[in-house]
Amino acid sequence: MNKGLSGLSRRDAVRAAALAFAVGAISPRLAFADEKAVAAEIKKLYGDKKMAEGKIKLDVPEIAENGLVVPVNVEIESPMTEADYVKAVHVFADGNPQPGIVSYQFTPACGKASAATRMRLAQTQDVICIAEMSNGDLYSAKANVKVTIGGCGG
């Protein structure tokens, strides 16, 4: 019988290789967040408080050719006065290694609750935006971004 360098028979070597492949296939290369991870993050911030739709304009590209630099622009409808303004805005993504993207704190001095930055997206996924008003009301919006080339070295 043809013995390998390590003294394994050819059959053992094939078996070991098959096992290694199976293990590799089961444990993913990178752990990604999912919808549940995003929901858990939101729960950490706001508990089970109800969220309404509307007021948020979440501007992301439908298709991002480069996942390393994806523009994300949020704008929340608000008079931005001392009595009624947008306090905080959180942006999450459900297909990145970590769900958080960015959190903003606005003040009435901003005049307009709008901000833009650029983010990394590892794969095609949903971007979720939560806005907290000064009276505690919550709003949410969601948009899908198709990513052609992932932004996490992939």
Binding site: N96, Q98, S103, Y104, Q105, A115
Partner: peptide
């Protein structure tokens, strides 16, 4: 001296981070 806008960035923010916002 008074904070008007704060952004908390996560690792998902692109290299050479850009940030824009408004001010009245």
């Amino acid at each position: 001296g008074k904070p008007v806008f704060v952004a908390d960035w996560n690792p998902a923010i692109s290299a050479n981070p850009y940030q824009s916002f408004f001010f009245k």
